[in-house]
Amino acid sequence: MHGLVPAPPANLLRDASLFLDFDGTLVEIAERPDAVRVDERLAGLLSLLFQKLDGRIALISGRPADEVRTLTGLTPLTIVGSHGMQFQWADGRRSMAPRPAALVDILQELRDLAARLPGVLVEDKPLGAALHFRQAPDAEATCIALAEGLATAHGLTLQFGKMMIEVRASGGDKGSAVRTLMAEPAFASGRPLFMGDDVTDEPGFTAAVALGGAGVLVGPERTTAARYRLPGVGEALRWLEAACKDIS
């Protein structure tokens, strides 16, 4: 969508199945992925949303699902990790795509690069390996070039994000996650609403719209498939809190 994207109305959450990105949507992006914390306000809000929406809420993150669950401390809650490749359902079911064998060699190459570039961080994920260059912005081109070469050489997917690049398993994204969730009876009765901030969230917006729902972009104006926008994390949390009150 081009041009001015309006703010979501408060009643958009009524009868919704709510899908939320994590970093940059519910919590501010930190210098390091392990520096993020979930405060009592957010934990309480997620619990309230679970109650108000009769369980029709899921977090969909590029992080590992176990990591998101540990950060939120919430059970039950459906969490999709690794860009739609790792499902932990509120009822205890779990599934994950196979870990690519090539990640052993890929991780070593990424670590060798990071050892030469101060500030570059390597993140070992269940289904991928990422380079974070937020603390070394001058290293962006070098990091992307290595990741592109490795993804091509091993037939894996290249995943761009905010100040990071990841080589990961192929076969899923946040759009496929939304479609999988909406095929479940627990979510099918709602209208999909996906909130996210990054280019990795665009497939989620597209899937939500295709299924009769909407996307909410969190962050600055840009070309997006989302129909609504909120300026940042603080505004996203305030909108969710107000929308909760609008649900009878």
Rank of each mutant, 00 (worst) to 15 (best):
residue 22 F to K: 00
residue 169 A to C: 12
residue 75 T to R: 12
residue 128 G to V: 12
residue 34 D to P: 03
residue 25 T to K: 02
residue 133 F to M: 05
residue 30 A to S: 12
residue 5 V to L: 14
residue 46 L to Q: 05
residue 77 L to G: 00
residue 103 L to M: 10
residue 223 T to K: 07
residue 134 R to I: 07
residue 120 V to M: 12
residue 228 Y to G: 05
residue 108 Q to K: 11
residue 59 L to F: 11
residue 25 T to W: 00
residue 166 E to S: 10
residue 72 T to S: 09
residue 176 S to Q: 01
residue 96 M to E: 14
residue 226 A to R: 06
residue 143 C to G: 11
residue 43 A to F: 05
residue 191 R to Q: 08
residue 118 P to I: 12
residue 3 G to C: 00
residue 119 G to F: 11
residue 59 L to H: 02
residue 141 A to Y: 09
residue 222 R to H: 09
residue 177 A to N: 01
residue 86 Q to C: 13
residue 237 L to M: 08
residue 139 A to G: 05
residue 228 Y to V: 10
residue 222 R to G: 01
residue 201 D to F: 11
residue 29 I to H: 07
residue 78 T to R: 02
residue 108 Q to G: 03
residue 121 L to G: 07
residue 219 G to T: 13
residue 87 F to G: 00
residue 166 E to R: 13
residue 91 D to I: 11
residue 155 G to W: 04
residue 204 G to P: 11
residue 45 L to P: 07
residue 148 E to M: 15
residue 224 T to I: 12
residue 165 I to L: 14
residue 201 D to Y: 05
residue 151 A to V: 13
residue 184 E to T: 01
residue 99 R to S: 11
residue 206 T to C: 09
residue 188 A to P: 01
residue 187 F to E: 02
residue 207 A to R: 13
residue 77 L to H: 06
residue 103 L to D: 10
residue 74 L to F: 11
residue 73 G to T: 08
residue 247 I to E: 06
residue 137 P to C: 08
residue 101 A to K: 14
residue 171 G to C: 04
residue 54 D to V: 13
residue 153 A to M: 14
residue 121 L to F: 09
residue 100 P to R: 13
residue 88 Q to C: 14
residue 112 D to I: 08
residue 206 T to A: 14
residue 244 C to Y: 12
residue 9 P to E: 01
residue 33 P to T: 04
residue 19 F to T: 08
residue 70 T to N: 00
residue 149 G to V: 13
residue 140 E to T: 05
residue 112 D to F: 04
residue 203 P to R: 10
residue 92 G to H: 09
residue 41 R to I: 05
residue 149 G to T: 07
residue 34 D to I: 03
residue 240 L to H: 09
residue 244 C to K: 14
residue 117 L to D: 01
residue 233 V to G: 03
residue 245 K to T: 14
residue 209 V to R: 10
residue 205 F to C: 07
residue 5 V to P: 00
residue 4 L to I: 12
residue 122 V to E: 01
residue 139 A to Q: 00
residue 179 R to A: 10
residue 118 P to F: 07
residue 17 S to V: 14
residue 21 D to I: 09
residue 199 V to G: 03
residue 81 G to Q: 07
residue 36 V to I: 15
residue 83 H to N: 01
residue 201 D to P: 04
residue 30 A to I: 06
residue 220 P to Q: 15
residue 184 E to L: 13
residue 233 V to E: 08
residue 184 E to P: 00
residue 132 H to L: 08
residue 80 V to W: 06
residue 196 G to Q: 02
residue 114 A to V: 13
residue 70 T to G: 06
residue 38 V to Y: 06
residue 110 L to Y: 15
residue 169 A to V: 06
residue 190 G to W: 14
residue 158 L to C: 13
residue 38 V to G: 03
residue 77 L to T: 00
residue 71 L to Y: 06
residue 22 F to R: 01
residue 197 D to C: 15
residue 77 L to M: 09
residue 141 A to T: 11
residue 64 P to D: 15
residue 127 L to M: 11
residue 216 V to A: 08
residue 63 R to N: 02
residue 207 A to E: 10
residue 58 A to P: 02
residue 146 L to W: 05
residue 17 S to M: 13
residue 124 D to W: 09
residue 175 G to Q: 05
residue 118 P to L: 11
